[in-house]
Amino acid sequence: MVKPPKKILIIDDEAVFLEASKKALIPCGFFCITKQDPSEGIMQLKKDSIDLVLLDIMMDPVDGWDILNHIRSHTNGNMVPVMMSSAKKLHPDELIRYGDSMDGFIIKPFLDSELCETVNEFFSFYETLLKISHAALIQGVPESVRKKWVQLNRQIRAMNQIKEILTPPLIIQEPISPEEFLQQRLFQINQIITQKQSERDLIQFQYPVFRN
């Protein structure tokens, strides 16, 4: 039986990037829904089964972070993977604040092959998590534990990847250099990741099925 294509919702207020994303992803076998109005994107997410959201940060009048929070506040969007995109690299404080809610970050402009590879790699990783979670379900592991394990793995992966491309702000309201600022924030981010890894490892110790 042939699996239906993964359904990707792309939310971006610039039509050129909506078309560029579709152009990159459709030849890779994905089904794309594009929305230039963020509110229409949220409505689409509420009524449709979406496998991944690609969400632009720099939108007007509501930015992508507000939309991300809105998505996570609804049942339909609580677990759906969301990758953020922007022409600007992320500020470390953005990763600290929103790292729990996003599954990746895509820098604009992008090559078609890069976007396709990024999305394929995520789905490969995520489907493996879901298979292990299903095996845990068969063994009677509570749903809350399975969801927590999946979320922790998603967060750890995203934060580890995104921390490599962070940039400090041009103006820093502290008596330190941009390099020192970035190192301080990276230390804080690594502490967050370590805590999440400890939580995940505890679950895996309690439920060995997750170690497969």
Rank of each mutant, 00 (worst) to 15 (best):
P4Y: 06
L9N: 04
I11N: 01
I11H: 05
D12S: 06
A15M: 12
E19T: 15
A20Y: 07
K23C: 04
I26E: 12
C28W: 00
I33V: 14
T34F: 11
Q36Y: 06
D37G: 00
I42R: 08
M43I: 12
M43R: 11
K46D: 02
K46Y: 04
D51V: 07
L52S: 06
L54T: 04
L68I: 08
N76T: 15
G77D: 07
G77E: 07
P81F: 14
V82A: 08
M84Y: 14
A87V: 15
L90G: 15
L90A: 15
L90W: 14
L95I: 15
R97Q: 15
F105P: 15
P109L: 00
L115R: 11
E121Y: 04
E121R: 13
F123G: 14
E127P: 09
T128G: 06
I132L: 04
L137S: 05
Q139D: 03
V145Y: 03
K148A: 02
K148I: 00
Q151Y: 10
L152R: 01
Q155I: 01
A158S: 12
N160F: 12
P175Q: 08
P178A: 04
Q184H: 12
F187T: 12
I193M: 04
T194A: 10
K196H: 09
E199D: 15
D201L: 01
Q204P: 00
Y207H: 15
Y207R: 03
N212Y: 11
